[in-house]
Amino acid sequence: MAEFGKVAVMFGGNSAEREISLMSGQAVLDGLLANGVDAHAFDPKDTPLSELKTQGFERVFNVLHGRGGEDGTLQGALEFLDIPYTGSGVLGAALAMDKIKTKQIWCSLGLPTAKFAVVESTQSTDYQAVLNELGGVVMVKPANEGSSIGMAKVDNAEDLKSAIDAASEFDREILIEQWIDGGEYTVAILGDKALPAIHMTTPNDFYDYQAKYQSSTTEYHCPCGLSQEEEAELGQIALRAFNSVNTKGWGRVDFMRGSDGQWYLLEVNTVPGMTTSSLVPKAAKVAGFSFNELVMEILKQTLVK
């Protein structure tokens, strides 16, 4: 373990996903300590990043979800400090955090994703026209939030206005996607490989914050029930989508499968949840990695220049 040196496990922070980050970070810290790594908790809400150098940290395991940790900001600071860190670099993190920029790149490459519109919180919007353009039922999302924060499914102009107003509490730009009826899937990426896909089912309208973190009725299927050929196809799309926005190391790509059998890309997560019950650890377990082995595989990526 000496080759890793002193490791800061970065979690907490100031984003809307702070509470989830605290849980993920503690799980990662416990996993690294169980492997004998000289790992320490580091919450940038309480401690300035300059202390990384002062306290002799040699690398960072980033478990900051959302703004400040998943948007290129932390990555740029660590590059300036010349401290290796897990996950994507500045560009990949910034692009993947922005759902609108990500979808624009996917569309330019012919990758499958739902029809969408973009509105700004300050602009005048014809809500009924947006609904008509996108099939009458839509999903409203802040452009730069995770964990389904600020999201809503709507099917009328009045509710669309309310949902945009609510999403505007988190972001100036709002993504409005055509609603896709079908199953929700996710593919974790580790290095240059796609891990086994997970199919999530919930009685909720969609896999929202409550379904992710509070519900006892959400079910996770891994193996996901796809044929070998279908899962291989899904993995290839996930890798193309992941690489297209310059992300690397590890992460997660989320999908819908429409009632027409078509795959629709939703987003890329560059610092996905890492509690012992989160999606990436679930997929890694089926691929043969224990949680403690998974965190070591991710940490090892910081040794590669």
Rank of each mutant, 00 (worst) to 15 (best):
M1K: 14
E233D: 14
T73R: 07
Y207C: 00
F255I: 10
I164D: 06
A77V: 02
Y209D: 00
I237R: 08
L91I: 12
T270H: 03
L81G: 00
L294H: 06
T218F: 09
L226E: 09
I180F: 05
F170K: 10
P281C: 00
K101M: 12
G261C: 05
E177Y: 01
L64S: 06
V187D: 05
F291G: 08
K300F: 11
G87C: 06
L74D: 01
K153T: 04
G66C: 01
T125M: 14
Q301A: 14
K115G: 10
F80L: 14
E169R: 15
H65S: 02
R67F: 03
V119P: 14
S148R: 05
D205N: 08
Q26G: 07
D155P: 05
Q104M: 12
V304L: 14
L279A: 01
S148F: 06
G110A: 10
L49G: 12
I189A: 03
G56E: 05
N156D: 13
D159F: 06
G251F: 02
A117Y: 10
G249W: 04
A211M: 07
V7Q: 04
N292W: 08
E19P: 13
E133S: 15
S148K: 02
Y264F: 11
E70Y: 04
F11W: 01
N62F: 03
I20D: 01
Y209E: 06
S227E: 13
M1C: 15
H221D: 02
T102C: 12
A94T: 02
K285V: 13
T54I: 11
F80S: 07
T54W: 03
I100R: 08
V268P: 01
T275Y: 09
T122W: 14
N243L: 04
I176M: 07
D38R: 09
Q123A: 15
Q104W: 07
K6F: 02
A163F: 03
F255T: 00
Y85R: 04
L64Q: 01
K115M: 10
Q104D: 11
I176P: 00
E173A: 15
G258P: 01
G92C: 07
L175M: 09
T47V: 13
G89M: 06
D126V: 12
Q236Y: 09
P44T: 07
V304P: 11
K248I: 12
F80K: 05
A157G: 11
S278H: 04
A284K: 05
A129N: 12
E173P: 08
S124M: 15
